[in-house]
Structures are given as structure tokens and as C-alpha cells.
């Protein structure tokens, strides 16, 4: 969060730097089965974000001490490729990717029927090839599509989207400039069929009214994005 800046991010017509209005989401494409050797996979582009997710398993959990006798272990790894941002990232696990991996796993564990696969492990590999803003949302959304593609049973798919505040205006789906200079960011993970939440983070400064607006924007956007996900899975299966 860059705090209040002089940069004007919203013009007099309420349009944003990339021409969107406050509730509009960046263009999204979803493709399944992109990694031939994986059990399930998904590539999601969301604005300039380009994220690939592979799912392997269920397989035997190694080493034995990580096994759970009553359910499967969800092994989620979020990673940014070295060339995914404007400054190169040193390869390897860092604190940020470890935290995102954990919250993504926590969100997915709420919907995946893990108790059907005791002692096994399901690997979810999230690789960010190109990052703009909101990669954790793209990663979580793409991961649920990839899990569905792998035939892992789930009670619902998670749709994740973030809203925030820029120049005192609440907007949906922050892009890179808005993320850098904005005043707040509220990523949420929504279950579109019930409207419940499995993932929630927030940083910045929002009044109760702004918070409610951002919340409503997210729920509406999640519903729209869910249609694209369903479409990708239905046509991916038929063609």
C-alpha cells in the first residue's frame, strides 16, 4: 500500500486507469488440461496475470509422519517464477509464498472431501508465470478448477477476488497501479453456490460503509467469475 498519493487513479467519469468502471473485473480466460503429465491442470489468465496450476494425486503421503489417519493431506505450493515480476525474484520459498500457500490450503481444505482419502496426499502446485496484482486470488481460483479437472471431490469451487479502495473510491479487482497506490485491499474466497466464505484477508483502511461496498462487489464478481469457471470445465470435458 503506497498510501495517499498525488496520482489520479479515477477520472471524472468514474473510469479507472485501464478504462474499467468501479465494478468491472479484468478480462479472464480459463483453460483446463494444459499440463499433459498432470492428473489435473488449469491455466488462468486474469488481466496480465498468468497462472498455471497442476494437481497430482491422491498419492501416498511421504514421509509417513505427515500422514493423517482420517483424511488426506492437501499439499499446496504457491510459487512465483523468477521472471514473473518486473524485478527478478530469487528462486526458492520465501515468507510471502509460504503464507499464501498456507491460506490457499486452508481455503481449499474447507471444500475438498479429504476424508475420502485417508493417509494420502494431494499435491496442488500453483506457479505464477506473470504477475500483475491479485495473484493469490488467481492462484486459489485456478487451483479449484484444477482440482475439479483432476476429479477430486469437492462440495463447491472457491472463487477468489479482491476489491479495494483507490482515491477514496471503492473498486473491484485492483490492477497493478491501483494495488501499488491504493489505500486498501480486501481479497475474499467465496463459495458461489452457498455464498459462504472460506478465505478472507484485508489490509489498509476502510470505513464500515466502504467495507460493505467492497464486500458486495466481491460477491457479485465471484458470481460472474464462477460462470467462466463452470464454462471452462463443461466445454473442456465435451470437446
Amino acid at each position: 500500500m503506497g498510501g495517499y498519493g498525488d496520482i489520479q487513479m479515477i477520472d471524472e467519469n468514474g473510469l479507472r486507469v485501464d478504462g474499467r468502471n468501479a465494478t468491472q473485473v479484468r478480462p479472464i480466460t480459463i483453460e483446463t488440461g494444459v499440463i499433459p503429465v498432470a492428473d489435473g491442470s488449469c491455466r488462468m489468465t486474469w488481466g496480465t496475470n498468468d497462472v498455471i496450476v497442476a494437481v497430482y494425486g491422491p498419492m501416498e503421503a511421504h514421509p509417513r509422519k505427515i500422514q493423517r489417519q482420517d483424511r488426506a493431506v492437501l499439499d499446496v505450493r504457491y510459487n512465483m517464477a523468477p521472471f514473473s515480476t518486473s524485478d527478478r525474484i530469487r528462486p526458492g520459498f520465501n515468507r510471502r509464498s509460504r503464507e499464501i500457500s498456507k491460506v490457499t490450503a486452508d481455503a481449499l481444505e474447507s471444500v475438498v472431501l479429504l476424508e475420502m482419502y485417508p493417509r494420502s496426499k494431494i499435491r496442488v502446485e500453483i506457479e505464477v508465470l506473470c504477475a500483475e496484482a491479485g495473484t493469490r486470488c488467481v492462484g486459489l481460483t485456478a487451483a479449484s478448477v484444477a482440482l475439479a479437472d483432476a476429479g477430486i471431490p469437492m462440495t463447491d469451487m472457491v472463487v477468489s477476488v479482491a476489491s479495494g479502495k483507490v482515491n477514496d473510491v471503492v473498486v473491484c479487482d485492483l490492477n497493478k497501479e491501483e494495488d501499488n497506490y491504493g489505500e486498501a485491499d480486501l481479497p475474499m474466497g467465496v463459495l458461489p453456490n452457498s455464498g459462504e466464505l472460506v478465505f478472507l484477508q484485508m489490509d489498509g483502511d476502510l470505513s464500515p460503509e466502504e467495507f460493505q461496498t467492497a464486500w458486495d462487489y466481491n460477491i457479485q464478481a465471484a458470481y460472474d467469475i464462477h460462470k467462466i469457471m463452470v464454462d471452462a470445465l463443461k466445454t473442456g470435458g465435451a470437446n
Binding site: 455464498g195 464486500w215 458486495d216 460477491i219 457479485q220
Partner: peptide, 13 residues
């Protein structure tokens, strides 16, 4: 039982 965040926004399938 399911608690719904904002049911008015979510038209069911």
C-alpha cells in the same frame, strides 16, 4: 446448516 453471507446477491443455480 448453511449461513449465507449475502443471499440477495446469490441467485441459486
Amino acid at each position: 446448516s448453511r449461513l449465507v453471507a449475502r443471499p440477495d446477491n446469490m441467485s441459486g443455480n
